[in-house]
Simulated scan of single mutants.
Amino acid sequence: MSTGQRADARRNYAHILSIAEHEVAARGAGASLEQIARTAGVGSATVRRHFPTRRALLEAVSRKRIDALCVRAEELTGRGDSRDALLEWLNGVVAYCVSARWLAVALAYDSTGSDSVHENTCATSLEDAGQPLLRAAVADGAVAAGIGVGDFITLAVGIVLATEHHPAPDAEASRLFQLAVVGLSPPR
C-alpha cells in the first residue's frame, strides 16, 4: 500500500486486510475472497484491486509474522554458537508456519506460475534475513556448504504441510525438522 494513496483508499485497504486476517485465520489459505469482500462491505473487484492474487493476499496477511521472523534473525546474528542461532531461528520459522498454516502456503515456492520465488516477498524477506545466520554457520563449519536459506524454508514448508493433519502437528513438525537437521549437518 503506497503512502501516496488517498486517505480513504488507505483506510479501505486496512479494513479489508483486517477482515482478511480474520478470514484466513479461521478458514486458512483457501479463505473466500468473495466472503472477505462481503464482510468488508465492498465489492470483490475492490478486494482484487488491493490483492490481485491469492498469494498477494496471503503475503499481506503474513507480513507481521514475516517481519517478526526477520527481526529475530537479526537479533540472533553474531550471538553465541552460529549453528544454534541458525537452528533457533529456523525452529521459529517452523513454529510460525505450524501455528498459521496459511503462512506455509504463502512461503511455498511456485516456479511454474507468475508468482515465482523471485516474486514471493515473504520467502525473499526470510531468505535475506537468514543469510547472515547461515553464512556464519557455514564459516564455522557448523552447517554443510552448498545449502541455502531457501532450502531450509522449502524443507520447513514441506514438513508443515505434511504434518497438517497429524494429531499433534506442532510436535510432529518439530520432530521431523530436527530429524532433517541431523541429515543436513556435516559430520562432527
Rank of each mutant, 00 (worst) to 15 (best):
M1E: 02
M1P: 08
G4V: 13
D8Y: 01
D8M: 03
I16A: 06
I19W: 00
I19A: 07
I19D: 06
E21T: 13
A25M: 14
A26D: 12
R27L: 13
G28K: 05
A29S: 15
G30F: 06
G30H: 01
A31D: 06
L33I: 11
L33A: 07
A37K: 01
A37S: 10
T39R: 15
G41D: 00
V42D: 09
V42I: 05
G43N: 05
S44H: 13
T46C: 00
R49M: 13
R55V: 10
R55D: 11
L57H: 12
L57T: 02
L58V: 07
L58T: 04
K64E: 12
R65P: 04
D67E: 14
R72T: 11
R72K: 14
R72G: 11
E74D: 13
E74T: 07
E75N: 07
E75K: 07
L76K: 02
G80M: 02
S82E: 10
S82W: 02
R83W: 13
R83V: 09
D84S: 10
A85D: 02
L86M: 03
E88V: 04
L90N: 09
L90K: 03
N91C: 04
N91M: 05
V93Y: 00
V94M: 05
A95V: 07
S99D: 15
L103F: 03
L107A: 01
L107G: 00
L107S: 02
A108N: 04
Y109A: 13
Y109T: 11
D110G: 05
S111P: 13
T112K: 14
G113K: 06
G113Q: 12
G113H: 06
D115Y: 09
D115P: 10
H118T: 07
E119R: 14
T121G: 10
C122K: 04
A123C: 06
G130N: 03
P132I: 04
L133Q: 07
L133W: 07
L134M: 02
R135E: 12
A136Y: 07
A137Q: 01
V138R: 02
V138A: 04
A139Q: 13
D140I: 05
A142G: 14
V143H: 04
G148E: 09
G150I: 06
D151N: 10
F152Q: 06
F152C: 08
F152Y: 11
L155V: 03
G158W: 12
H165D: 15
H165N: 12
H166F: 05
P167T: 10
A168P: 00
A168K: 01
P169W: 01
E172Y: 00
A173M: 12
A173L: 10
S174Q: 11
R175K: 14
R175A: 15
L176W: 01
Q178H: 14
Q178R: 15
L184K: 00
S185F: 02
S185C: 08
S185A: 13
S185Q: 11
P186D: 11
P186F: 03
P187T: 08
R188E: 12
